[in-house]
Amino acid sequence: MNRRELLGTLASVSSAGFALSAGGLSFAADGNTARQTGPRNLITDVPGLKIGQSQDAKVQTGVTVILPDKAAVAAVDVRGGGPATRETDALAPHNLVQEVDAVVLSGGSVYGMASADGIAAWMGARNRGFSMGSVPGVPPSPILPTACLYDLANGGNKKWGEKPPYRKLGVKALEAASEEFELGTAGAGFGAMSGGIKGGLGSASTVTADGHTVGAIVAVNSLGSAIAPGSKQFWAAPVEIGNEFGGLGTEELHANPEDYGHALRQAKPRANTTIACIATDVALTRVEMQRIAVMAQDGLARALRPIHAPFDGDVVFSLSTAQHEAPSIMPRSVLTMRLGAIAADTLARAIARAVYEATSLPGNSPKPAWRDL
């Protein structure tokens, strides 16, 4: 395809959208063809994917595991100024391993990294992981990119000494992997806060006109707020599908340039992080998944204000379960653009759902939930 043909295709994409016809994929006239969710409106609407979660109510923390049925092509984009991550360098396109065995999201800041230790041991004992060749008595090495958020100061009992709970929480989450899972105060979002109120775990999905699925899962522990100052309306309202986070509309979505509500009152180094994973069932390369991760970061900007601050550790993973081959009717670059744009909106919706579904922590929590405002 030459430059003129590509530009023509892009013009058609932006003005018409996509639809299914008897001959395959065609352009539709309504331009609104990717506005439906999967049956669960969860990331597990992406075939070949399960989610496992665990939490400790006394410690007020938790772990979420994104588990593909088989090793999946993955990428990552790190934007926050204070990330807490493991094995993200391994996801660079020029490095050896091109697939991951799972993606781990955890509370606990640096202590949460141990959640991946437990998962690695569990998987290795079951012969799942990367290996250059089978060696008797030597387990494979599971590839487990991990991102952690800071929930250490949320009032839970963190007097764990030399035995943080995250290794056990990781294994417990993995063993609980299912297509159904809780939102709000659950998993990695159990102890999370967001813009002065309770944060949480959110998820959403979008099904394209030609039957492909994009899903998002996110633990929202953001400095920025998901709602407009003086309002309960979500910044993500323009991309809401149905009433998935209240259907409150956009009437009160306005703010002065330096009005962040309660957000800046909790600004502390490395104390605020939104960690997420985007998934699709389309078979894509590591480079294409990298671009989707980059584009998906815009979902954070659509749903949280401010975002990507020095105090944040924002990380977005992306992975492909490769259940369907990429449609040959369109250029790969156009397909990547299309899925990346959908991913950004889907992630924005998942963030709003995390805050919408959250409940206050047990005990005398100083942070109200959105539903308590």
Rank of each mutant, 00 (worst) to 15 (best):
L67K: 03
L67F: 11
P68E: 02
P68Y: 04
P68H: 02
P68C: 10
P68L: 05
D69L: 12
D69W: 10
D69K: 05
D69M: 13
D69S: 11
D69A: 11
K70V: 12
K70A: 14
K70S: 13
K70L: 11
A71L: 07
A71R: 04
A71C: 11
A71I: 02
A71M: 08
A72Q: 01
V73R: 01
V73I: 09
V73S: 01
A74K: 01
A74N: 05
A74T: 02
A75D: 00
A75S: 06
A75R: 01
A75N: 02
A75W: 00
V76G: 04
V76H: 06
V76T: 05
D77L: 07
D77P: 11
D77H: 13
D77Y: 09
V78R: 06
V78L: 03
V78Y: 07
V78P: 05
V78D: 06
R79I: 08
R79D: 11
G80E: 03
G80K: 01
G80L: 04
G80F: 00
G80N: 06
G80R: 00
G81P: 03
G81T: 10
G82L: 09
G82C: 13
G82V: 07
G82P: 09
G82M: 04
P83R: 06
P83E: 09
P83L: 06
A84Y: 10
A84P: 12
A84F: 13
A84V: 15
A84E: 12
T85G: 10
T85R: 08
T85V: 13
R86N: 07
R86A: 07
R86H: 07
E87G: 09
E87Y: 11
T88R: 10
T88K: 10
T88W: 05
D89G: 10
D89P: 14
A90Y: 13
A90Q: 14
L91S: 02
L91E: 04
L91M: 11
A92K: 14
A92L: 14
A92W: 14
A92T: 13
P93S: 08
P93F: 07
P93H: 12
P93C: 08
H94M: 13
N95Q: 15
N95C: 12
L96M: 15
V97Y: 12
V97A: 11
Q98N: 12
Q98K: 15
Q98F: 12
E99N: 15
E99W: 12
E99S: 15
E99H: 15
V100R: 01
V100H: 02
D101Y: 04
D101N: 15
D101R: 03
D101P: 09
D101C: 12
D101A: 08
V103F: 06
V103Q: 05
V103H: 02
V103T: 00
V103D: 00
V103A: 07
V104H: 00
V104P: 00
V104D: 01
V104M: 09
V104Y: 01
L105H: 06
L105Y: 03
L105R: 00
S106P: 11
S106A: 15
S106L: 04
G107P: 03
G108F: 08
G108L: 08
